[in-house]
């Protein structure tokens, strides 16, 4: 299992880092922590400007750009304009060009499995966060089952940070926690169970889960424990 304390430390460090370097450091650390071959974050904005970080070799990145593989990469075609995560297994690799592209990527050190999270940002910005590994289908299915939601959240945290460090751009104002979310986080911080919190707020446990889910995302956390810790360290809740 992935060490969740280390995971949160990596994301905390990335968030506190003022420069794009922080994204590169974080993605290498995350790749190592999850024990996969590669993680890559790549964005294109409406003006066509690109930015990326990740663990693919420089040789593969240069080859990709030089050959303009954006044209034939099934991952790009399968993710562009979408907002659901994509397992590479569902993509169409049957064409001759796609097959050759995949064989070449493996020669450059990529694994045979992939999972990509497309993100639609503001003003036509499009980004992709990808996890790549070499393993059999059963092992990959287990990895996705265990970690797909973490990957979706991490993808969005990378994008949020990338938008913040983009030159000339005003960072988006942090989303406030709602009074309900503050109530829920405060009670969780005080050690109440979810059932107790739901009961005293007179809401269902499903409703409580939505408040926690939304607060967690606003706080850049992957689980409730981290979300509570961050809300406290930022002075958003007082216990």
């Amino acid at each position: 299992m992935v060490n969740t304390v280390q995971l949160d430390t990596i994301l905390e460090k990335m968030e506190a880092s003022p420069a794009p370097d922080g994204l590169q450091t974080a993605i290498v650390d995350l790749r190592d922590l999850f024990g996969v071959r590669h993680m890559v974050y790549h964005w294109v904005d409406s003006a066509g400007d690109q930015y990326g970080c990740g663990t693919y070799s420089d040789a593969w990145r240069d080859r990709y750009v030089e050959q303009n593989y954006l044209r034939i990469d099934p991952v790009i075609h399968g993710c562009y304009q979408r907002f659901h995560p994509v397992d590479w297994k569902r993509l169409d690799w049957s064409g001759k060009a796609a097959r050759a592209f995949q064989a070449e990527s493996v020669a450059f050190g990529l694994g045979n499995q992939g999972f990509s999270v497309p993100i639609r940002g503001p003003n036509g910005q499009f980004a992709l966060f990808t996890v790549n590994d070499a393993c059999d289908d059963a092992a990959w299915d287990r990895f996705i089952e265990d970690h797909s939601r973490d990957m979706i959240l991490i993808a969005h945290y990378f994008n949020r940070k990338a938008l913040d460090v983009e030159p000339g751009r005003q960072p988006e104002p942090a989303q406030p926690l709602s009074p309900r979310e503050i109530d829920a986080m405060t009670m969780l911080a005080l050690g109440y169970s979810r059932a107790q919190v739901a009961n005293s707020l007179a809401i269902s446990e499903h409703t409580l889960r939505v408040y926690i889910e939304s607060a967690r995302f606003k706080l850049g956390a992957l689980n409730t424990t981290h979300a509570v810790a961050r809300a406290m360290s930022r002075g958003l809740i007082v216990v």
Binding site: I152, L153, Q175, P176, S178, R180, Y211, R216
Partner: peptide, 11 residues
């Protein structure tokens, strides 16, 4: 919705 937007890629 409780006074602030509901935001999450999982919702």
């Amino acid at each position: 919705t409780g006074g602030a937007p509901v935001i999450s890629p999982l919702i």
